[in-house]
């Protein structure tokens, strides 16, 4: 929750990604309360509506859920959901740009695969 905001992406997307990352890293645990909209607003100096939009996104995906009168909580199985989602987006977010850059530099598929093969995950 302590990453800085950048200008390259909409703020509400950054808010929801930060919460996801905290869940993946075990900073926020399942069935644990997440910071309120107002707390997020004050922490990042952003409009509460923006923070609410970021949280709303995670509620729609079933990663967070609302307990009436108390606040937002991390849903059971949230970590798996986020992992699955990020894996699904991995190709689009990372492989496609990698290939585009390789193409404009004239790197062949074989060279690329060798580069990857040389490294450990």
């Amino acid at each position: 929750m302590n990453e800085r905001l950048t200008e390259q992406k909409s703020i509400y997307l950054q808010i929801s990604e930060m919460i996801e990352t905290d869940i993946l890293r075990g900073i926020l645990l399942e069935e644990e309360q997440v910071p309120s909209t107002n707390e997020l607003a004050k922490l990042y100096t952003i409009n509460p509506a923006t923070a609410a939009k970021g949280i709303g996104l995670l509620v729609d995906e079933g990663i967070l859920y609302k307990r009436r009168g108390i606040g937002m909580f991390v849903a059971k199985g949230a970590r798996e959901k986020i992992l699955a989602k990020r894996k699904a987006a991995f190709a689009e977010n990372h492989v496609v740009p990698l290939l585009a850059e390789a193409r404009s530099l004239g790197i062949s598929k074989e060279e690329l695969l060798t580069m990857i093969g040389e490294r450990n995950i």
Binding site: T37, N38, A41, K42, T45, I46, N47, P48
Partner: peptide, 8 residues
Amino acid sequence: KLLLEEYS
């Protein structure tokens, strides 16, 4: 921050 606090 004060503005947001008052607003919230």
